[in-house]
Write a protein that binds this DNA or RNA. Structure first.
Lengths: 339, 339
DNA sequence: CTGAAAGCGCTAACAC
DNA sequence: GTGTTAGCGCTTTCAG
């Protein structure tokens, strides 16, 4: 008797059903709001649910229905990042609205770390996955395909996604900015980035930037790619580094706004004025830029739109509704007065 | 036949076991790394796991073992927030290391939203919960207690937690800062905050601040609490608002560093110098402050330490190891030159 | 070191 | 509108 009661402290459906004087099946129908019960029955069941403090068991429900769970796995480079934080927030909000739960992961731009996470998450039989970053290992791809679940790859536009891609065109962002900077009459142009050990999409913007310069017969005058995470301070000392090496730059393109803002402060600390002495441009429309006395020249992006679109596309696919495979999230070069 | 094969595309333990020429039980032991098998057996099983691309089914495993899952629910006010982003990152990292999965939620400082999330998460039979924010509804408390799972309440120190509390002492932070500001000779002191509709811990710091002023027979000269989320721009226009109403303030305490930085920029935009014309103080040691020409007077906190400590405390409790119920995460007033 | 039997809590499928 | 039967894939328990 005692031995049998180990885990029986938690109320289960049977007890609710018995208390309500109906069968398990009927109680189950009421709780899932499936059809096939009278109003009277519903009231009886819900009354007992309330009285007994019944908490449904999704583990058992998922298991019993032999389907995937309502868990969605979302893996981003870092959870502490204003850009990805906003993506997570909008993604989670949209998923929750549709009744899905978010299980998170941080891969730190390492495909191997991502693979480990994928292996793990797949064992929860998720309804779908949202991945970010550039590359996945072969095993990652195979695992996902073998499970046959929908995947949305976010952050970068990907013309041949595993399943669905929702992203910015980072290459074009860099390309466009290079042309703009050249158009402003700059010639000695540098680039300051971070994450050298595990490059993210900043590397792609840099590529587009360099390509555009090349097409105008200009070379990148210097570049400084730190072995550090992007941030205000990284921008500050990255600028210090590059200017110490190459003093005559007349413009710098930064990996993102946080670094660009750090760069502006370094220049000011050295008595240089922006944009007279040196032009500065960033990427990402960071909120911090809104309080600067100058308007930062940058590429405006909506990480919130990205996250929401990704979540909605995933849900549509899960439900078998038609979805575009490749969805580009628009970006816009916003000229300021820092370049 | 066809009807029976609906979901059999996914390999299960039985098939692995059969292919390896052992029983399900033996294969299960190998995969869980439980004892009771020979090296030879292990190799045979793992070979088949590899060959067949077997992905374990945690839903079934959790269900079969009649225990809680290895899911941990973590609910913070916002996922896009540098402070909570860092908490999430360190929490998730620590939990993953111990083999737990993080299921997230954002309650936006609303106890009702939190309650809905708790109800939902509990149906996944999580091993534990990490909650943040100030108050929980009665139902939330009851639900958690009825499930009998460990909970860590983070962010604010709580001397009578549901289970475990790991947090900063926000009241003391405000108190200490008030005494410091008074000690610097300021008299006409204002406060600028945000989140008026759903106050978080900033409200508690404000209380401590006001209490300390009172004990020195000083009143808060003015306060401006915006109906908006904290951020650089909120600090900027919050400062504009308060100074337009009360022009003769000689110091302002901000809800956090983001707002303080916004405030500094507003003052500069008006030709006021900090700290000569007006003193400014914040809270939270935000990275952005590192690039300012001045060092911001603030309270240094480690959200990373908080997250890690919380995760470790939770795991210890889950494992039945001894843990302190109340763990205070230290903070330190760091005098800068903005006040 | 290995295996057989029972059962976890729920839902699908089919009766009534 | 409601109940019955079977079974999801794994682990626990107990027997060898």
């Amino acid at each position: 008797m005692a031995a049998k009661n180990k885990n029986r402290s938690k109320v289960n459906l049977s007890e609710v059903a018995k208390a309500a004087g109906v069968s398990k099946m009927t109680a189950s129908r009421v709780l899932r709001n499936a059809s096939g019960f009278s109003d009277e029955t519903r009231d009886k069941v819900l009354e007992q649910v309330e009285r007994l403090g019944y908490v449904p068991n999704r583990i058992a429900a998922t298991f019993g229905s032999e389907q995937t769970s309502t868990i969605i796995g979302v893996c981003v480079p870092h959870l502490s990042s204003s850009l990805f934080g906003a993506v997570l927030d909008s993604t989670n909000g949209a998923l929750a609205k549709f009744g899905y739960q978010t299980m998170i992961g941080a891969h730190e731009n390492s495909p191997e770390t991502e693979e480990m996470w994928v292996k793990n998450i797949l064992s929860w039989r998720p309804a779908g996955l949202i991945l970010s970053g550039h590359t996945h290992t072969r095993t990652t791809r195979e695992l996902i395909k073998s499970q046959g679940i929908p995947v949305v790859e976010i952050w970068n536009l990907n013309t041949s996604p595993i399943d669905i891609s929702v992203g910015f065109n980072h290459f074009d962002c860099g390309h466009e900015m290079a042309l703009y900077i050249l158009g402003q009459g700059h010639q000695r142009i540098g680039y300051v980035g971070a994450d050298s050990a595990a490059p993210g999409m900043g590397a792609l913007r840099r590529k587009g930037f360099v390509a555009a310069l090349k097409s105008s017969s200009t070379d990148l005058a210097a570049q400084e790619i730190l072995n550090d995470r992007s941030g205000f301070y990284a921008g500050f000392y990255g600028t210090e580094n590059i200017l110490n090496r190459v003093g005559d730059l007349d413009a710098i393109y930064f990996q993102d706004d946080a670094m660009a803002i750090g760069g502006i402060f370094y220049c000011q600390s050295q008595g240089m004025s922006v944009p007279e002495d040196i032009g500065i441009a960033g990427w990402g429309s960071m909120e911090a830029a809104s309080v600067l006395p100058q308007r930062l020249t940058t590429t405006v992006v909506s990480t919130q739109a990205l996250g929401k679109t990704a979540a909605e596309a995933l849900i549509s696919r899960v439900r078998g509704e038609p979805v575009n495979d490749v969805i580009i999230t628009p970006t816009r070069l916003a000229p300021g007065n820092t370049i």
